[in-house]
């Protein structure tokens, strides 16, 4: 796949002509990219670069800016609240990404079979993703309410553990993160299932037939055919999941914050910290420095992922 096909099919051209072909190719390629790139550059890239420049400044959003060098970054090193937020975010990501991927892939494979009611099941599993967050978070919190919520009542009936000793879910600092991870997986797995379903359609059926002839069982087929064929999809899903998990904000706010939009120590995430620093403390420079850390973190992961994509996807 990574073999430059054009070389195979074309007779060796003279040097000068080849150059102009390169240029022509580039023009064609860029004209394909341009409609998106221009909109993207103007409306996202420019403000974004400005925000990154801000990380070296002190700015309250209105008064003149002041250059402070690396002061914002050195402050990050000792800011315990920030460290906490960073750890929480990483913890959340580590929970959500694999959990969602497994659930989504499982669902997709299950609902790719020719079984009765699969269309209905697909639609149903997509429900949580399309529903408005305010409404489903309220539902979820209600179901998981510590002393009187149906989930704990049911657990109590099933296990006999007294209600007081059952997890207090969102209200319990030790369970809060788990609860929100569960919620996120539940809310988003339907969407990633759709991506996987789409990916599954691209799997070459002949490979299965060949594997059957070789006497492979279902597990071997899954491991040796489905998974490698799904590699680009998996790469995409994991990438988007990681990025979205690092950027998580809404879910935490609607799950935990109540009316005052405030999060506690165990549920404070990076973007919340950025938002608070920028808009409550009016420290846009410092907030940008935090965003920069997030950016570099994800960039690092992206590069690693890309390297491995080249290795495995080809």
């Amino acid at each position: 796949m990574m073999v430059p096909n054009s070389v195979v099919f074309e007779p060796k051209p003279r040097r000068k002509k080849r150059l102009s072909k390169n240029v022509r190719d580039a023009i064609v390629a860029y004209s394909f990219i341009a409609p998106n790139l221009i909109g993207f550059a103007v409306f996202t890239l420019v403000p974004l670069i400005f925000a990154l420049v801000l990380s070296f400044l002190k700015w309250d959003g209105a008064n003149p800016m002041e250059f402070v060098g690396l002061a914002n970054f050195s402050r990050l090193l000792t800011d315990k609240t920030f460290h906490r937020a960073l750890c929480n975010t990483i913890l959340y990501t580590a929970g959500v990404v694999p959990f969602t991927m497994v659930c989504a892939l499982g669902l997709a494979i299950m609902l790719n079979q020719k079984v009765l009611g699969r269309n209905l099941s697909r639609t149903i599993s997509f429900f949580p993703y399309v529903a408005s967050l305010v409404a489903v978070a309220a539902v979820w919190n209600f179901l998981f309410s510590p002393t009187k919520g149906p989930i704990n009542l049911m657990l109590n009936a099933l296990t006999g553990i007294p209600i007081e000793e059952l997890p207090r879910w969102a209200a319990d600092k030790n369970w809060a993160m788990f609860t929100v991870i569960l919620f996120s997986v539940w809310k988003n797995m339907g969407y990633y299932m759709v991506i996987y379903l789409a990916g599954l359609q691209g799997v070459n059926q002949e490979l299965y037939e060949a594997a059957s002839l070789d006497g492979a069982n279902s597990w071997q087929k899954f491991w040796n055919v489905t998974l490698p064929q799904l590699a680009p999809t998996t790469f995409f899903v994991s990438m988007i999941l990681i990025i979205n998990s690092f950027k998580v904000y809404d879910v935490f706010i609607t799950m935990f914050a109540g009316g005052d939009n405030q999060l506690s120590d165990t549920t404070r995430v990076l973007v919340y910290q950025i938002y608070n620093t920028a808009f409550r403390a009016l420290d846009f420079g410092y907030a940008s420095a935090m965003a920069m850390v997030l950016f570099l973190l994800v960039l690092g992961i992206t590069i690693i992922q890309f390297r491995s994509e080249k290795k495995f996807v080809a």
Binding site: I33, L37, F40, F43, T44, L45, V46, P47, L48, F50, A51, L54, G61, M239, I240, I243, F246, K247, Y249, L270, V271, I274, Y275, A278, F284, A287, S288, M290, A291, L294, F295, L297, V298, L299, T302, I303, F306
Partner: peptide, 23 residues
């Protein structure tokens, strides 16, 4: 270019919301 595209997905909107709004 592609890397640049993906990397920008990583920056939370809240971080550049104000500059964007001004623009």
């Amino acid at each position: 270019l592609f890397m640049a595209y993906i990397a920008t997905i990583a920056v939370p909107w809240q971080a550049y919301m104000v500059p964007q709004f001004i623009m």
